[in-house]
């Protein structure tokens, strides 16, 4: 079951990545990144247990923190800076 759960998390990560690459807005990417980060935390917690690393929970906790800080940082960055021009340019590039 642990393996099944880990696979489920990996699948979800892949789906989040899909959303991250598809966009279309940077907010979607942000969301995908955040979701991905949470999945990483879960993955480390579960996978660490499955492979019996010690102190994996510390790492998972650290990741939860880093994930939050990263999301906030990204958000601050986009909130007051660039929203539309950036999207347009990116769409154009594709």
């Amino acid at each position: 079951m642990l393996a099944a759960a880990i696979i489920a998390i990996l699948v979800t990560m892949a789906l989040a990545l899909v959303r991250g690459f598809r966009g279309p807005t940077e907010y979607d990417r942000m969301l995908a990144a955040n979701s991905f980060g949470t999945k990483t935390v879960l993955l480390i917690a579960l996978g660490g247990h499955a492979l019996s690393w010690h102190s994996h929970l510390d790492v998972a906790l650290l990741y939860a923190m880093v994930n939050f800080v990263g999301t906030i940082a990204v958000m601050r960055f986009f909130e007051y800076c660039c929203s539309d021009e950036d999207t347009v340019r990116r769409e154009d590039a594709r």
């Binding site: 079951m1 642990l2 099944a4 759960a5 696979i7 489920a8 998390i9 699948v11 979800t12 990560m13 892949a14 789906l15 989040a16 899909v18 959303r19 598809r22 807005t25 907010y27 979607d28 969301l31 995908a32 979701s35 999945k39 879960l42 579960l46």
Partner: peptide, 25 residues
Amino acid sequence: LLVGGVLCVTGGIGLVRLPDFFSRV
């Protein structure tokens, strides 16, 4: 774990399937 995994994937599917940013949240 199984239910959690299923829900997790469901969320992932939702993340891809739903139409706009706010619903993806």
